[in-house]
């Protein structure tokens, strides 16, 4: 799957420091599959104590049609579970925008077709204040275009990850191509 641009209305979860236990609670991690985790995305936020779905924004049709999640700063802190981007992707999200994204989540998202986009505080605040805004993410130009008076914001993304995402390639193939260098390293360091 290759990504060039994503255009979608946003869903906003403005809370800061959303951790991976919120994104997908640990009790759903006994699976051995990476499929079908979207139903457990933000499970405890989306359900009442009796297990019935509540009126959380992620239970609306508008959210189910959205591909862009805007979240408060330091999104994805906590555990290394890749189930977090798997669940976001399965639900339908293809990008998360915040002013700060935690390291391990950031690395995991890039490998699973969920763009982790860190933008400046000004644009972030604009997005937090305008849920449902139609936003365009252009990976070829590294730009986020906000509608109306929102303007255009640049974002940084690792050039290699960007190349992989745009070409629809994965990193394992690249690592396998380094087999000779790896063998040379092992020979040198283990003798």
């Amino acid at each position: 799957m290759s990504i060039q641009t994503i255009t979608s209305k946003t869903v906003v979860l403005a809370t800061a420091n959303i951790d991976t236990d919120q994104i997908i609670p640990a009790r759903f991690l006994t699976t051995t599959s990476r499929e079908g985790l979207g139903v457990n995305l933000f499970y405890d936020w989306r359900h009442n104590k009796d297990g019935a779905p509540n009126d959380h924004v992620l239970n609306t049709n508008q959210a189910r049609d959205s591909q862009i999640l805007v979240a408060g700063e330091n999104f994805g802190c906590g555990s290394s579970r890749e189930h977090a981007p798997w669940a976001l992707h399965d639900y339908g999200f293809r990008a998360v925008i915040s002013s700060e994204i935690a390291d391990i989540f950031h690395a995991n998202a890039l490998k699973n077709g969920v763009l982790p986009i860190v933008i400046n505080k000004h644009a972030h605040n604009w997005l937090l204040a305008h849920p449902g805004a139609e936003v365009k993410i252009d990976l070829t130009r590294c730009e986020v275009s906000l509608p109306g008076n929102g303007g255009v914001s640049r974002f940084n993304i690792d050039p290699f990850s960007r190349h992989c995402l745009m070409a629809g390639k994965d990193e394992l193939g690249y690592l396998q191509d380094q087999a000779q260098a790896i063998t040379d390293f092992e020979t040198k360091s283990e003798t």
């Binding site: 990476r34 555990s79 290394s80 579970r81 890749e82 981007p85 391990i104 690395a107 995991n108 490998k111 699973n112 994965d170 990193e171 394992l172």
Partner: peptide, 8 residues
């Protein structure tokens, strides 16, 4: 810590 893709 790493994610599962990196475990692979």
């Amino acid at each position: 810590g790493i994610g599962t893709t990196q475990v692979a």
